[in-house]
Design a protein around this nucleic acid. Structure first.
Length: 808
DNA sequence: TCCGACACAAAAAA
DNA sequence: ATTTTTTGTGTCGG
């Protein structure tokens, strides 16, 4: 029997807030940990609305290589909110492979179909390219004949290369996202070049000037045409237009891969490489044409061979639903037609080609459809947050991540490896990267083990009198040794509560002004400081809910989101003498953790008070929650100019004069640099250069920061809160260290007494310090549990149920 | 509630 | 390697 860290979190809500929005909690341990989460709310604390939910959808997230991988499990009824371990396990393993389904295309590329409600993939990921639904021919509108009245076969070859995923037997597109349709046409029985050397006529006898394609969309319910729009790569900055009629010559449709590769080519030499796929030059055809030939009629010299409809979207105005429940379905139509001279009859209303013809006034020519193909029904999802997944983390899907190990069997689990992020860019101090990789890779197969050996995890929420307390979070799975990528020396814990939708973090943290917290002022050429594993790192983001509580009983509209990232502490060494937490943002909510304390609540915790003197600066991580002082601390650079705290402080607080001071300092340093360079060795010069760069950076960041225009009062306020928080956190981390030491001691004693197998409990350098085999006592399911209700929010499947609440 | 507009961010392209 | 471009989607306000 071992004991494991417990994290306690207290969230103080503003008065007026009475409930919580359902959401998902994550408890994340190391790089490959599994967390099972229960959200328990005492019955007497339930506020109207919270317990309305009859269904809860537990989710399981595995954190691997800096990314979450989600596993859904079948929903459970809240009649029995206690998620039975076995059932949980079983359902997890059942659906694990459903997140992304990958099929192999004819050209060796893959089409990975995934539900954007469940997983978010980077915008430029190659996984966004995929072959969509096939087209099927519609009865032809015309036949075409050559000079000898022979019928010339014509076959469209359309393909969707982006924008539609096959999910649960439906083809799903997104209103906000681009899709791509490409098409060429083939001339069975004729060589494409030869085809161009002859003349053609419609079965009505009209001479065909040239061939062209059109893209259209129809709503299947009312059979009405739907507008499409096309953007340029500049999107909002460029023009919008209806997908044009493309004049094309017959050709083979380039493979999907070619369309991918050619999708955003600007480089001239690269464009040349693709030229032959997409263009026919009249001179390529040769001279031996018949007297009258269609080639001569083509209006442009490079003649398109492929109609590429890229960056297409359904017009924003289209209604996507018939009723609140029922989706309208759409079909895309690819039409091959021809231009003929003059204005011609419109097509009868009963024809599927109705309104697909088009008279071009400028050219005095009419586009007359000849053949067309259509997609099966398509469902277009709108902008509702319910059509997007919860804001977790982007799955990293660089090509190299999955190219190296192509999945052999396309029907099996797709290979969706996620890569550790930006590893290359920083010095990796962590000792056993190799181990991490191999082990993380295995982590999926370890799920059952981890789960069965895991700890139950409980969040208890008591939203009484404006306070909500989350306490006693036990780790479901502390981990096997594999879960601790930082090696034996440390363990990383983090907890995140993510709201299910729109979350006004920025507004909320800084009430009056918008400060950008998600993107710290950070020059891209600044090297990110390395993460020192012996350092205590602690960062929180939290905010007030700004939604005023409505009188409406049915609506629990308050939202809370907090992210508690990376409590890293050393478990084998004595705590560092100095433990500087990362900078805090000003908090209205107060969040604290207690590690390894089952008995006392947050309120009970009174850390030993220490002196108020500031700690010497240490390296800090630049994070999303970074703030100016993170960047302006020159001590962060080992050979940079040292600056005492008072100076740093004043530079931060006194915005204006700080700039001047910095400039002065920079000047001085630059002078020094200048002197030095004249008489220093190359290495010294290099060093000085880097110093110079840092100075430049400093200046730039300062300039940028000046644009945040924070008033002095605000700065004072922020600083005060910050220093308070830092002090508190420092105390806390010291306290936590001592607690952890106690725990380890206890554990060691236990191990000794219970005669552990294979655990070399004696060696302090061993990874045993972090329990590698975790048997956690089952959660005490007592009367307390009966009075509780688990509310773990799961995204709706198939858009059947509407979101019951929205953040405002 | 829906939508235009702007914003952020991550991978491709250069 | 770094910078620019592209595009999925978060967000705000009308």
């Amino acid at each position: 029997m071992s004991t494991y860290p417990t994290i306690k979190v207290l969230v103080k809500y503003n008065s007026g807030d009475k409930g919580c929005k359902s959401g998902t909690f994550f408890l994340n341990i190391g790089s490959a940990a599994i967390i099972k989460i229960k959200l328990l709310i005492k019955e007497e604390d339930l506020v109207k609305g919270i317990n309305r939910k009859k269904e809860i959808y537990p989710e399981l997230y595995v954190y691997e290589k800096s990314a979450f991988r989600m596993y859904t499990i079948d929903h459970v009824n809240d009649e029995n909110i206690d998620i039975d371990d076995d059932r949980f396990l079983a359902s997890v393993s059942n659906v694990e492979k459903d997140v992304i389904k990958t099929l192999r295309n004819a050209d060796g590329t893959t089409s990975s179909h995934f539900d954007k409600r469940k997983v978010r993939i980077a915008p430029r990921s190659t996984l966004q390219f995929k072959i969509g639904p096939s087209f099927t021919p519609v009865v032809p509108n015309h036949k075409i004949l050559d000079d000898y009245a022979q019928i010339q076969e014509i076959k469209l070859e359309p393909r969707i290369d982006r924008g539609f995923d096959f999910i649960d037997n439906d083809w799903i597109g997104y209103k906000r996202n681009y899709f791509t349709v490409v098409t060429s046409f083939d001339t069975p029985g004729s060589d494409h070049i030869d085809f161009m050397k002859k003349a053609y006529y419609l079965d009505s006898g009209i001479e065909i000037k040239y061939f062209a394609t059109k893209l259209a969309a129809k709503c299947l319910e009312d059979d009405k045409l739907i507008s499409l729009v096309q953007h340029t790569a500049k999107r909002d900055k460029g023009p919008q237009f209806a997908p044009p009629i493309h004049v094309i010559a017959p050709a083979n449709l380039p493979k999907h891969q070619i369309i991918r590769d050619a999708s955003n080519v600007r480089n001239e030499s690269k464009m040349k490489k693709f030229d032959s796929y997409f263009f026919l030059h009249k001179e390529d055809v040769g001279p031996d044409c018949e007297e009258r030939n269609v080639l001569a009629n083509y209006p442009s010299d490079p003649i398109k061979k492929v109609a590429r409809y890229e960056r297409i979207q359904f017009a924003s105005s289209i209604a996507l639903k018939k009723t609140s429940q029922q989706n309208r379905r759409f079909s895309l139509l690819v039409v091959l037609g021809c231009f003929v001279k003059g204005r011609h009859h419109t097509i009868s209303q009963t024809s599927p080609y109705h309104e697909l013809d088009h008279y071009d006034e400028q050219k005095d020519m009419t586009f007359i459809p000849i053949v067309m193909e259509k997609t099966p029904p398509l469902i277009i999802r709108g902008r509702s947050p319910s059509n997007y997944c919860q804001q977790i983390k982007v799955m990293h899907t660089k090509k190299s991540d999955y190219e190296t190990e192509p999945s052999e069997d396309p029907t099996t689990n797709p290979h969706i490896d996620k890569k550790e992020r930006k590893r290359q860019g920083r010095k990796d101090k962590q000792p056993n990267t190799k181990l991490i990789h191999s082990l993380s890779h295995d982590s999926l197969s370890q799920i059952p083990t981890l789960l069965t050996s895991g700890l139950p995890s409980t969040f208890e929420i008591s939203p009484t009198s404006g306070n909500m307390r989350i306490k006693n979070i036990q780790l479901l799975s502390s981990s096997t040794e594999t879960s601790f990528p930082r090696g034996a020396q440390s363990e990383s814990l983090s907890v995140a509560y993510l709201s299910n939708s729109a979350t006004p973090i920025q507004e909320s943290i800084f009430k009056k002004r918008r400060l950008n917290i998600s993107k710290p002022v950070l020059e891209s050429n600044l090297e990110e400081p390395t993460d020192d594993i012996t350092e205590n790192i602690f960062s929180t983001i939290s905010f007030d809910e700004r939604t005023p509580l409505k009188e409406n009983n049915d609506q629990m509209s308050s939202t809370s989101v907090f992210l508690l990232k990376h409590v890293t502490y050393c478990v084998s060494e004595p705590p560092p003498a100095v433990a500087i937490p990362r900078t805090m943002l000003p908090n209205k909510m107060e969040i604290s953790y207690c590690l390894n304390d089952y008995s006392s609540s947050f309120i009970d915790y009174q850390p030993p008070s220490t002196s108020n003197r500031r700690q010497p600066a240490s390296r800090r991580l630049l994070t999303a929650s970074g703030n100016p002082s993170d960047l302006l601390n020159p001590a962060d650079w080992s050979d940079g100019p040292k600056m005492v705290d008072e100076q740093r402080n004043s530079a931060f607080v006194q915005e204006g004069s700080g700039d001047i001071e910095t400039q002065k300092r920079n000047e001085q340093i630059n002078r020094e640099v200048g002197e030095l360079v004249t008489r220093k060795s190359l290495s010294d010069q290099l060093r000085e250069n880097s110093k110079k760069k840092r100075q430049q950076f400093q200046k730039q960041t300062r300039e940028k920061n000046s644009f945040t225009r924070v008033s002095n009062e605000d700065l004072d306020h922020i600083n005060k809160i910050k220093s308070d928080e830092i002090e508190k956190l420092r105390e806390f981390s010291q306290w936590a260290e001592s607690e952890e030491r106690k725990r380890l001691k206890k554990q060691r004693l236990l191990q000794l007494s219970t005669e552990s197998d294979g655990l070399s409990s004696g060696t302090s350098t061993n990874s045993d310090l972090i329990p590698t085999e975790i048997r956690i006592p089952k959660e005490v399911k007592s009367s307390k549990m009966k009075n509780t209700l688990g509310v773990i929010r799961k995204k709706r499947t198939k858009g059947v149920s509407k979101p019951t609440e929205r953040g405002r």
